[in-house]
Protein backbone atom coordinates (compact mmCIF):
# COMPACT_ATOMS: atom_id res chain seq x y z
CA UNK A 1 0.00 0.00 0.00
CA UNK A 2 1.40 3.35 -1.07
CA UNK A 3 0.61 6.09 1.42
CA UNK A 4 1.54 9.65 0.48
CA UNK A 5 0.73 13.15 1.65
CA UNK A 6 0.59 14.48 -1.90
CA UNK A 7 -2.42 14.41 -4.17
CA UNK A 8 -0.73 12.38 -6.87
CA UNK A 9 1.78 9.53 -6.90
CA UNK A 10 4.69 10.09 -9.31
CA UNK A 11 4.91 7.35 -11.92
CA UNK A 12 1.31 6.23 -11.43
CA UNK A 13 -1.90 7.32 -13.05
CA UNK A 14 -4.89 7.58 -10.72
CA UNK A 15 -8.06 6.47 -12.46
CA UNK A 16 -10.53 5.86 -9.63
CA UNK A 17 -11.37 7.54 -6.39
CA UNK A 18 -12.77 5.18 -3.76
CA UNK A 19 -13.56 7.81 -1.14
CA UNK A 20 -12.38 8.77 2.31
CA UNK A 21 -10.55 6.24 4.49
CA UNK A 22 -9.83 6.87 8.14
CA UNK A 23 -8.41 5.34 11.26
CA UNK A 24 -8.38 6.51 14.85
CA UNK A 25 -7.25 5.43 18.25
CA UNK A 26 -7.22 6.87 21.75
CA UNK A 27 -4.47 5.74 24.07
CA UNK A 28 -3.19 6.59 27.53
CA UNK A 29 -0.10 5.83 29.58
CA UNK A 30 -0.39 4.49 33.10
CA UNK A 31 -0.53 6.99 35.92
CA UNK A 32 3.15 6.44 36.84
CA UNK A 33 4.23 7.81 33.47
CA UNK A 34 1.88 10.77 33.94
CA UNK A 35 3.47 11.56 37.30
CA UNK A 36 6.96 11.27 35.83
CA UNK A 37 5.89 13.64 33.08
CA UNK A 38 4.67 16.20 35.59
CA UNK A 39 8.10 16.04 37.31
CA UNK A 40 9.73 16.58 33.95
CA UNK A 41 7.91 19.90 33.80
CA UNK A 42 10.27 21.15 36.50
CA UNK A 43 13.46 20.59 34.56
CA UNK A 44 12.22 20.39 30.99
CA UNK A 45 13.32 17.92 28.35
CA UNK A 46 11.74 15.18 26.34
CA UNK A 47 8.73 13.39 27.80
CA UNK A 48 9.75 9.91 26.67
CA UNK A 49 6.54 8.28 27.88
CA UNK A 50 4.41 10.62 25.83
CA UNK A 51 6.65 10.41 22.77
CA UNK A 52 6.18 6.66 22.95
CA UNK A 53 2.43 7.06 23.44
CA UNK A 54 2.01 9.22 20.36
CA UNK A 55 4.26 7.00 18.24
CA UNK A 56 2.21 3.93 19.14
CA UNK A 57 -1.07 5.72 18.61
CA UNK A 58 -0.05 7.18 15.26
CA UNK A 59 1.09 3.79 14.03
CA UNK A 60 -2.16 2.17 15.09
CA UNK A 61 -4.32 4.86 13.49
CA UNK A 62 -2.35 4.46 10.27
CA UNK A 63 -2.74 0.67 10.38
CA UNK A 64 -6.50 0.98 10.77
CA UNK A 65 -6.72 3.42 7.88
CA UNK A 66 -4.66 1.11 5.65
CA UNK A 67 -6.87 -1.86 6.61
CA UNK A 68 -9.90 0.16 5.49
CA UNK A 69 -8.21 1.03 2.20
CA UNK A 70 -7.30 -2.62 1.59
CA UNK A 71 -10.91 -3.59 2.17
CA UNK A 72 -11.92 -1.18 -0.60
CA UNK A 73 -9.31 -2.70 -2.90
CA UNK A 74 -7.26 0.48 -3.13
CA UNK A 75 -3.76 0.73 -4.60
CA UNK A 76 -2.81 3.82 -2.61
CA UNK A 77 -3.96 6.38 -0.08
CA UNK A 78 -3.24 9.93 -1.16
CA UNK A 79 -3.37 13.25 0.67
CA UNK A 80 -2.83 11.66 4.09
CA UNK A 81 -3.41 13.94 7.08
CA UNK A 82 -3.00 13.46 10.82
CA UNK A 83 -4.90 15.25 13.55
CA UNK A 84 -4.62 14.97 17.31
CA UNK A 85 -7.35 15.80 19.78
CA UNK A 86 -7.28 16.07 23.55
CA UNK A 87 -10.33 14.09 24.59
CA UNK A 88 -9.34 13.84 28.25
CA UNK A 89 -6.18 14.73 30.09
CA UNK A 90 -3.31 12.29 29.78
CA UNK A 91 -4.82 10.65 26.71
CA UNK A 92 -4.44 11.41 23.06
CA UNK A 93 -6.62 10.67 20.10
CA UNK A 94 -4.76 10.16 16.87
CA UNK A 95 -6.77 10.35 13.70
CA UNK A 96 -5.40 9.59 10.25
CA UNK A 97 -7.39 10.19 7.10
CA UNK A 98 -6.83 10.22 3.37
CA UNK A 99 -8.41 9.40 0.03
CA UNK A 100 -8.22 5.83 -1.27
CA UNK A 101 -7.47 5.61 -4.98
CA UNK A 102 -6.89 3.03 -7.68
CA UNK A 103 -4.23 3.16 -10.37
CA UNK A 104 -4.77 2.33 -13.99
CA UNK A 105 -3.55 2.73 -17.50
CA UNK A 106 -3.96 6.36 -18.67
CA UNK A 107 -4.90 5.17 -22.15
CA UNK A 108 -7.71 2.88 -20.93
CA UNK A 109 -11.14 4.14 -19.79
CA UNK A 110 -11.70 3.99 -15.99
CA UNK A 111 -13.46 1.01 -14.46
CA UNK A 112 -16.49 1.74 -12.28
CA UNK A 113 -16.69 4.08 -9.27
CA UNK A 114 -15.83 7.73 -9.63
CA UNK A 115 -13.48 8.63 -12.38
CA UNK A 116 -10.86 11.22 -11.57
CA UNK A 117 -8.12 12.99 -13.47
Amino acid sequence: MIVVTTETVPGHHITNMLGLVQGNTIRAKHVGRDIMASFKNLVGGELKGYTELLTEARRQALERMIAQAQQLGADAVVNLRFTTSAVTQGAAELYAYGTAVKFGDPTQPPHGDTEIG
Binding site: I26, R27, A28, V31, T88, G90, Y95
Partner: peptide, 23 residues
Protein backbone atom coordinates in the same frame (compact mmCIF):
# COMPACT_ATOMS: atom_id res chain seq x y z
CA UNK B 1 -14.23 3.57 32.30
CA UNK B 2 -12.09 6.28 30.70
CA UNK B 3 -10.76 7.61 34.00
CA UNK B 4 -9.96 4.05 35.07
CA UNK B 5 -8.13 3.41 31.82
CA UNK B 6 -6.17 6.60 32.42
CA UNK B 7 -4.70 5.01 35.55
CA UNK B 8 -3.52 1.80 33.88
CA UNK B 9 -2.79 3.07 30.40
CA UNK B 10 -3.59 1.43 27.09
CA UNK B 11 -6.31 1.74 24.53
CA UNK B 12 -9.43 3.69 25.53
CA UNK B 13 -12.21 1.88 23.71
CA UNK B 14 -14.97 3.85 25.46
CA UNK B 15 -13.60 7.20 24.33
CA UNK B 16 -12.84 5.81 20.88
CA UNK B 17 -16.44 4.87 20.24
CA UNK B 18 -17.54 8.35 21.32
CA UNK B 19 -15.19 10.02 18.86
CA UNK B 20 -16.09 7.60 16.06
CA UNK B 21 -19.78 8.32 16.58
CA UNK B 22 -19.17 12.08 16.60
CA UNK B 23 -17.11 11.92 13.44
Amino acid sequence: ATSLRNLFGGQMKSAESLMTRAR
